[in-house]
Design a protein around this nucleic acid. Sequence first.
DNA 1: GTTATACTTAGGTAATTGCTTAAGTATGGA
DNA 2: TCCATACTTAAGCAATTACCTAAGTATAAC
Lengths: 111, 111
Amino acid sequence: MPGGNLDLTFQALADPTRRAMVERLSLGPASVSELAQPHAMSLPAIVQHLALLEASGLVASEKVGRVRTCRIAPAALCLAEQWFNQRRAEAEQRLDRLGEHLRKYPDGEPR
Amino acid sequence: MPGGNLDLTFQALADPTRRAMVERLSLGPASVSELAQPHAMSLPAIVQHLALLEASGLVASEKVGRVRTCRIAPAALCLAEQWFNQRRAEAEQRLDRLGEHLRKYPDGEPR
DNA sequence: GTTATACTTAGGTAATTGCTTAAGTATGGA
DNA sequence: TCCATACTTAAGCAATTACCTAAGTATAAC
């Protein structure tokens, strides 16, 4: 049960390198070196970013032979997306109530 | 034209205090002290969190008299949500292609 | 005018982050 | 067997973060 942690998820996504890695993995699995290739950065740095992505549950990986293959784990992505949906739902609900209130009492408030 | 920065947006949301503040503001505007009230933390700390939320474009505020009123700015929220939508769209597209491929070539690959 | 309120500004500090280089460890190929 | 590949581990370092306390500055109320 990795994932479930919005702190780690959003923190992982706050870094442009890590976000690029997730974007890359959205297009399909990749090895660590493939993930590293577009970035002007040492491999250990990439591995550290990857570790954070795995800790957040956004990415999973498995090693076969000497190459580690990484892929996105949609669950954590969904969880974060849901957070936004909830916030928007609440905000919209509030605006709806406000609208109805204004419709009922077009000028002064009752209270 | 604030907002537009996913780095700042996700970084802002990575902190539980700031996320709680956004959650609170989704329910309606609030003053700085109201935002601070649920948190066991000094007011300057809250103000710093608020500054980051404003820098990210997630929250806007205006001061009238001696009270600053804060409210969420839906635009930045949408932008982040869109990022997730894109990632999911790409991942799904890929899985669709994979599915079709498997339908066409149920066992061995052609290549 | 005095005092309380609602922030605001200015430091300071311990912990965390995002890198780096150097030196491993397996695995696969010639 | 030797060597290249694909990571992995360890240690270190500058910058950033998330707080804090103390001391402001405007408003509002009395």
